[in-house]
Nucleic acid binder design. Sequence first.
DNA 1: ATAGGGTTAG
Length: 619
Amino acid sequence: MFKTKTPKFFASKYATLCCYSSAPSIAEATTHQELLEQTQFSHYFDPRFYLSQLIKCKNLYQVKQVHAQVTTNGFLENNQIVANKLLYIYCLHKSLGDACSLFCGYSEKNVISWSVMIGGYAKVGDFMNSLRTFRECLRYGVRPDSYNLPFVIRVCRDTMDVKMGRLIHSVVYKNGLMLDDFVVAALVDMYSKCKVIWDAKELFDGMPKRDVVAWTVMIGACTESGDPNEALVLFDRMLEEGVVPDKVVVVNVVNACAKIGAMRTAKVVHEYIMRSEFSLDVILGTAMVDMYAKCGSVDVAREVFDGLREKNVITWSAMIAAYGYHGQGHKAVDMFSMMLRRGILPNKITFVSLLYACSHSGLVEEGKRLFSSMEKEYEVKPDIKHFTCMVDLLGRAGKIDESLKLIEDIAVEKDEGLWGALLGACRIHGHVEFAERAAKSLIELQPENPGHYILLSNIYAKAGKWKDVAKIRELMSHQKLKKIPGWTWIEDDNKIHRFSVGDHTHPRSMEIYEKLKYLLKELEIAGYVPDTNFVLHDVDEELKLGNLFSHSEKLAIAFGLISTPEQSTIRIMKNLRVCGDCHTFCKFVSQVTSRMIVVRDANRFHHFREGACSCGDYW
DNA sequence: ATAGGGTTAG
């Protein structure tokens, strides 16, 4: 009878036990023990048996049991494979202490043991020890290879240490590993996350054979560095080269669409995803919700959201944020209570989105209530971003004093976002003194940002302090500050058209200006008066450069009118905040032409319809 | 026996 029970039998019995008992009771533990004893005495004992056990271990307790067995059998001394596997499993369970003591007790370490250790430290975020172990292993005589290098390159990425990154890059070069997929892709990733995009590009272009991960890294890098169109071009090139896309690269493409705000492209990508065999998991689904919202359709975003099987905090936060920047604060708040009912706990980002939503919809009481509940009820400690939202919320509602009081209570250092919010509030309500203080703080924090100087000079101008105006202007020209160029873009059937102020580079430029001229006449009849005194908003360099008439927003809308079918919605995107005169202009255009106009600016969405904007002139 | 790229705000 007993003879028929082979080691294999015990192995599978044992593995089953390991699999299904996350917290073994004493009875189970006894069974464990029996099984282990029997296998131990088996003549057919095989190290592969231990490997299979290790793989199936579900918790640290089980790993330690196997560890004890392996030790009594003397397998740690004799079998490097089993020992390394054990080491690796400890790292997987993030039990670096156990891993380390095991590792230090090795009589013989090989290349793999070192790599596992370096990777293990990197995985739990112990970057110092990861690098230290790498250095030690070099001293020990192990060559840097295609396994251990990606780990340390990733450490440089995560610590944003491009100096160390370059050093390791040279190590890669000296060891002749510049043709290795893993190593070079890691380098490209490192450079791009450290914002040295040019180096990333150069490396990527030099790769002889690029797999899907290399492409993903580069596509993500383009989006991140502000060139999402290039990201889409790269994706097409990847397909042309016959590389099969997977879910991760598609998420990056979705992100690129979100950043451009290109609705048609978004739909094409969506269809592509539906046709392909990828299921919509949480991550891809969340990215898609975000994409539709940023392409101007919060309703489609909601449809995708409702269709998702799995949703997490991030998904819910994305939806809340979407309602926020589309000016539908009430729905954002509703989503929040729905989320709580589903048992999902909010995080700090959820609250940023929520408070932002309240402030952009003028939900003052609601916002205050949420703000005071966040720490008490949800254990989310307010940070500077939350304070900024509150200053904005109170400031917009005219409660400057409350805003100022809140600021006094902030223990952490005030950043430019906070001062900016306060400044916005002061400007709306003509609080010159505090506006001046805020603007000066902004300049101190970011002396290289021209927008802040312009703001301050506008404040002085409004108060009639012309000497101060002149001083600021001089300061600016003295420092030769670079101006942030304003752009507006619009998508038609197959491409993105981008306009700057006074732009004549578009092939249909003549038509565009004709249309604009004609349109203005119509608008004036309807009561539109160009607002040449518009100095409320920051960074709008275009004001100084050109006349109102040829603002990039207006050019893009004129192009939209002549290039899209009547009645269809016109969607434009702008990298800065929309100018006040263009805002008025859009209202009139929506009235005169009976078109819906959706404008995405740096801050939020504006939906224009029949002469009114969804922001309620509150932005 | 060891390896990489993915989701929310600002």
